[in-house]
Structure formats: C-alpha cells, structure tokens
C-alpha cells in the first residue's frame, strides 16, 4: 500500500513537536505546515497523491509516482518554475525563494527512509497522531470505538 503521512486529528494535542522536528531535520524550513486554531492544530504535509496534480502539472516530469514510496522528486529535472505549487490542492508544496530556489515538500524523510528510519514527525509525535500505515490501525481504532458502533 502506498504510504502517506496519516494524521489522526482525534489524537493531535497541538503540541507542535512534529513541526519543530521537521524544521530541524530539513535545515530550518519545516515541510510540514502546522495550522493552529483555537483548540486544535492541524499538521498538513504532502499527501503523496496517487494521481498527483503536482506531478501532472510539472512540465519537466520532475515529480513522479514511485511504486510503494509515494511521490518522488527528481531534482535534476526541476526548473523551479513553481507550477507544481500552483497545482497542489493542499498548498503544501512550495518554492522557497532564494539565490537557489528550493522545492519544499514532505518526502516522508526519504533520506532517513533509505536508512530504514521513520520520518522524524512520526517518531516525535507523543500521541501517535501521525503514522504511515495508510490508516490501517487508525481505521481499526475508529471502527471499534463506540462512536462508530453500528445501528442497532
């Protein structure tokens, strides 16, 4: 199953630890956006769409779906045109301006992944609101909780 950063909002306590960990991991720019509301926070990151609009809109084919590992960014093809950012429905893909513009997008800590490690945000989250199991365990939990109890 394709992995993506599954956010179980019912568990999020708005502690911002994921955001801080992501920023530390990725050189001062968090690829995870944290939207804070009065009593809640929502961590948003690339959803590794299976038919990703960013990939479809990229004129250079620099974003591709890699089987089993989500959307892969091929840096050598990127022209930093910013069309991907325009296409992302969730606003989680950005071109960071600078002398050498950079694409900021959650890649599920690909470098760590290659070493067999989990993304930092998943490891950091104290309430396990973040996971990579495509909703398997969360799905089970949600199904088995009283709120989901079937009509009878």
């Amino acid at each position: 199953m394709e992995p993506f950063l599954f956010v179980d909002f019912s568990r999020c306590i708005a502690c911002q630890a994921c955001w801080a960990a992501c920023r530390r991991e990725h050189g001062g720019v968090s690829r995870l956006h944290l939207l804070c509301f009065q009593e809640a926070a929502v961590p948003l990151a690339c959803r590794q769409c299976r038919k990703a609009p960013c990939a479809g809109f990229c004129p250079e084919g620099a974003l591709v779906q890699e089987e089993g590992r989500g959307v892969k960014f091929l840096e050598e093809r990127c022209t930093h045109c910013g069309l991907c950012a325009a296409a992302c429905p969730f606003g989680v893909l950005e071109i960071v301006p600078g002398p050498v513009p950079d694409l900021s997008r959650c890649d599920l800590c690909r470098r760590r992944w290659e070493e067999g490690l989990m993304p930092v945000c998943v490891l950091t989250c104290p309430t396990r609101a973040l996971s990579l199991d495509a909703g398997g365990a969360v799905g089970r939990r949600r199904r088995a909780q009283p709120a989901a109890f079937p009509v009878s």
Partner: peptide
C-alpha cells in the same frame, strides 16, 4: 472545487478546516 482559485496559504487553511470538521466526530 474551491481550492484552485485560492492561494496556497488559503488552500492549507481550507484543507485543515475540512479535516478538523471531519475530526470533530472523533473527538
């Protein structure tokens, strides 16, 4: 859809509100 005509920041805001709205059932 409402998002294509929104800026990335507003897309994030919209999405987070949608998800929070769904999550209220789980709280």
């Amino acid at each position: 859809a409402d998002w294509p005509s929104c800026c990335p920041a507003c897309r994030r805001d919209l999405e987070s509100r949608r998800l929070l709205d769904a999550a209220r059932w789980n709280r």
